[in-house]
Design a protein around this nucleic acid. Structure first.
Length: 272
DNA sequence: CCCGGAACCTGAAGGC
DNA sequence: TGCCTTCAGGTTCCGG
């Protein structure tokens, strides 16, 4: 599932192939993928526009166009953006084809139909209430502390909340909490300054390592060239069903937090 | 505002 | 073999 490291990888690997190119045609194979505006307006406004910049906001990818519009893309759980030189036979589950000049096409493949695209003037029209970027200088331990204090919800749920911090999802929340040695069920308000410092450090370290490894391909994530990432090979607990804690050797436990599979080590991350 | 749960969606995997 | 249930989870919506 694409979270911050996966979207960052997609952005970095798309850029050299699509930057400066112009959309020559748009094929929408499933209308529901276009969130804003109508499918017809989406196509007509996009064709002829040149891609001038790529940026990432949380898990949202934004392609800036010379018209000052932004093509915003969210891959949600099962989406991938795949580059090809042959648009005649898109892979199964392709929902949209972005044809570019120079004979390149970008397929938006998404088996689960959760992914969406927007054509808007400001990326905030697609990504409402996005918290701070965890890898930007603005994200300090103090900022994290401020955003978690007075919150009774489990810290796992809070750091997965895009309005608290942008870009973290289920996998990296589990990884960061393991590295910080914090139980996922602890409430935000119960964390000590030392724990908040460790969590801040763990979030940045976990995300940076995953970006270096081009993202994690547990299910349904492929890089634009079709290759998987390798970040999941270094996971400590995430999706660690049946595995043992790399630190103490005890079995990793699976619980549900807000209906999301949550993996942790009961010994290394004791309940508060 | 805060919290927790449901809904969206479909393929994979497991149980019997 | 095949049907059925469960699981996967990013985001939004809704009720308390």
């Amino acid at each position: 599932m694409p979270e911050l490291p996966e979207v960052e990888t997609v952005k970095n690997e798309l850029a050299p192939h699509i930057l400066g190119r112009t959309f020559t045609d748009i094929t929408i194979l499933w209308d529901g993928i276009v969130k804003i505006p109508s499918v017809e307006e989406f196509r007509s406004r996009l064709v002829g526009q040149k891609i001038t910049d790529l940026s990432r906001h949380g898990k949202y990818l934004a392609l800036a166009l010379n018209s000052d519009d932004l093509l915003v893309i969210h891959m949600k759980m099962s989406g991938s953006l795949l580059l090809s030189r042959d648009s005649r036979e898109p892979p199964k589950y392709t929902r949209a084809i972005f044809h570019l000049d120079g004979g390149i096409s970008m397929f938006f493949r998404d088996p689960r139909k959760f992914g969406r695209v927007w054509l808007v003037r400001d990326w905030r029209m697609a990504a409402q209430r996005l918290g701070p970027e965890p890898l930007e200088p603005e994200f300090t331990p103090q900022v994290l502390a401020q955003r978690l204090k007075n919150r009774k919800a489990p810290v796992k749920a809070l750091i997965c909340d895009q309005s608290v911090i942008a870009g973290i999802g289920n996998m990296y929340a589990d990884e960061a909490l393991f590295v910080a040695k914090i139980n996922p069920l602890r409430s935000g308000s119960s964390l000590t300054p030392e724990e908040l410092e460790r969590l801040h450090q763990a979030i940045q370290q976990t995300l940076r390592t995953a970006i270096r490894n081009k993202g994690a391909s547990i299910v349904n994530y492929y890089r634009p060239g079709g290759e998987p990432g390798t970040a999941h090979f270094e996971f400590n607990v995430a999706h660690g069903r049946g595995k043992n804690c790399p630190d103490c050797g005890r079995p990793i436990q699976r619980i549900a937090v807000r209906n999301r599979g949550t993996y942790f080590c009961p010994k290394c991350q004791p309940a508060g």
